[in-house]
Simulated assay, not measured.
Amino acid sequence: MKEFSPRRFDSYASYRSAMLAALDVATSTIAIFDPDLRDAGLENSAAIVALDRLCRTSPRREAVRILVHAADFAERECPRLVALIGAFTHRAALRVTSTPFLSWTQPFLVADERHVVTRFDRDGPRGKLAVEDERTSSMLLAQFETMWMSGTPTTTGAPLGI
């Protein structure tokens, strides 16, 4: 398990490390928003193992929810992630946001409704890992739920752009 303590980061490598740390400690749910998943590191084998574990052990129906503005990067570059979502359609889902939410660009992950990894801006790596931060996580989850409800499900197990 990666180090799991509050910290700030300023590189993409540190961002991906914080993402993996949050995935490693999640026991119930993961909510991820990223405009395109390009910098999230979800395709690496350690992230896939953590997501697979969560899908197998979580008591929640949709344990892993991922929301993007565009699914083309996942379609081209994340075959293991797409296969995982296809294998766990009852536990994992990927949706594309609707047009009114395209202005939201702050990537984030909320684990178990209380741990947060976020970058402050889509165009840079600076961000933070916040542990047991229910104030930030509830604000981000409210935004996530709003975008999720109007998002469009993707076709998993097949090219996402269909």
Rank of each mutant, 00 (worst) to 15 (best):
D52L: 00
R53M: 03
L54Q: 13
L54P: 12
L54T: 08
C55Q: 02
C55A: 11
T57G: 01
T57Q: 10
T57I: 06
S58G: 08
A63I: 01
I66G: 01
L67D: 15
H69S: 08
H69Q: 11
H69M: 03
H69E: 11
A70Q: 09
A70Y: 13
A70K: 13
A71C: 12
A71I: 10
F73T: 12
A74Y: 05
E75N: 07
R76W: 08
E77I: 08
P79F: 07
P79A: 11
L81N: 10
L81F: 14
A83V: 05
L84Q: 13
L84K: 07
A87S: 15
F88N: 04
T89L: 05
R91A: 07
A92C: 02
L94G: 04
L94I: 15
L94E: 11
R95K: 15
T97H: 01
T97W: 03
S98R: 14
S98Y: 08
S98Q: 13
T99Q: 12
L102Q: 12
W104M: 07
T105D: 14
Q106S: 04
P107H: 10
P107E: 08
P107Q: 06
F108H: 14
F108V: 01
F108K: 07
R114K: 15
V116H: 14
V117N: 05
T118K: 14
R119Y: 02
F120S: 03
F120I: 02
F120A: 02
F120R: 05
D121G: 08
D121Q: 11
G124C: 05
G127Q: 07
G127V: 00
K128T: 15
A130T: 03
A130R: 08
A130S: 13
V131E: 12
D133H: 09
D133Q: 02
E134W: 09
R135T: 15
T136G: 04
T136D: 14
S137E: 13
S137G: 09
